[in-house]
């Protein structure tokens, strides 16, 4: 029987992770990584946010994408759950709604990897409009 994993194995994995992460970002700047926030309140959970978060973590682990995945509360888009907010480095955050597994896959392969927008964006702020007014 194989040995059950323990925190000692985590220590081993840490060194490996550290060398990989450090190569790419010497400046120690978390803003340089992709950040994904999954809305995880009652509304999100009930519509499958957990499965989506799980899927995204597995996919990004498999594809070795360096991203930080966290949970967040209800963003007020209960009608469009599950919702996720994706922030690419040096970009404004974008909120995607009605994220099922298919869309999650699209978001990873198109938006996170190539920067192409995909369907299902929820407009959360009107900064562009405000900026235009100021001009």
């Amino acid at each position: 029987m194989s040995k059950v994993k323990s925190l000692a194995d985590l220590r081993k994995m840490k060194d490996e992770l550290q060398s990989k992460v450090h190569l790419r970002e010497q400046s120690d700047n978390p803003e340089k990584l992709v950040q994904v926030k999954v809305s995880m309140a009652t509304c999100g959970i009930a519509s499958g946010a957990k499965e989506i978060m799980n899927y995204m973590i597995d996919e990004m682990d498999n594809q070795a994408i360096e991203a930080l995945v966290t949970q967040t509360g209800c963003m007020g888009f209960c009608h469009a759950e599950p919702t996720i907010e994706v922030t690419l480095p040096n970009n404004a955050p974008i909120v995607y709604g009605h994220v099922d597994q298919k869309r999650a896959e699209e978001i990873i392969n198109k938006y996170i990897i190539r920067g192409e927008l995909v369907d299902g964006i929820i407009p959360v702020n009107y900064e562009t409009v405000k900026e235009n007014k100021n001009d």
Partner: peptide
């Protein structure tokens, strides 16, 4: 254990 390795990385969750 992780030290300065970010706990939010997918590899850690997995």
């Amino acid at each position: 254990i992780l030290g300065d390795v970010d706990i939010r990385l997918p590899q850690v969750t997995s």
